[in-house]
Amino acid sequence: MYAIEAQNLTYTYGIKTPFEKTAIRDVSVQIPAGEFVGVIGHTGSGKSTLIQHINGLLRPTSGKLLLNGKDIWENPKEIRKVRFSAGLVFQYPEHQLFETTVYKDIAFGPTNMGLSEEEVRLRVEEAAEFTGISSALMDQSPFELSGGQKRRVAIAGVIAMRPEVLILDEPTAGLDPRGRDKILDRLRRYHQAQKNTVLLVSHSMEDVAEYCTSALVMNRGTLFAYDTVENVFCRTEELEQMGLAIPAITQVFHRLAAAGIPVSRNVFTMDAAKQALSAALEGRGRNA
């Protein structure tokens, strides 16, 4: 059984209007539980449409979406429950903040679930812990926080629902490098602690290489690949044809290999690069 399974998912916007457009076509994919999936693709490739199906915000024009083996549209009246088990964090989630205090805003989701006050408090504190929001901030207005803090509060608001699947649409867009690293590191810690499935939509191949265990590539509304990060990034040429760059460090290693230096071409992260380089240098020392 898979955490998320799409079966021939197709979605068309604006049916029977001049603006009719098929956003995703015949997407079938199986994502096992516990994966940290990087969702990549060009603007307009259907990433956002795909992820909005996973928590039932969009209903497929045809095809099915299964969460833990269950068709989420089996009973349309129960769709709110699906939204609690698949938490979706939109782009610029800080724009959705509305409560008078940070605490109340994070509590919005769990309160909607109908949990007891005690349980809500527990979950809010847990989510704040995961996203690194200190208890001093809890009674402040969310509108007084910095951009990075606001975003972490908004992400906490979804994490507090304890979703089995957490989906984030470009959670680092528009943040400075420090704010970005903070959010991604927190997410990794959250994923390791909760062992649930996380989907991260990202334009940064570096981030996908660094943080994700597998990658899902969308191209022009169809699924191009779903595989481990290594296997996906090995298809460099195809990715580049789609207008997707591979990580900068991988490009460096491709050039090195082309220049005749004995290094692997499949280096995607800084740590791997360090190891590969020192191994290559060592080999050279021995040869000399």
Binding site: R83, G87, F90, Q96, F108, N112, V158
Partner: peptide, 16 residues
């Protein structure tokens, strides 16, 4: 457009 986005975001948090 903004309203639609916010509605989706709050629906995702279980707003009814």
């Amino acid at each position: 457009e903004e309203t639609e986005k916010i509605m989706s975001a709050q629906k995702a948090r279980g707003a009814d």
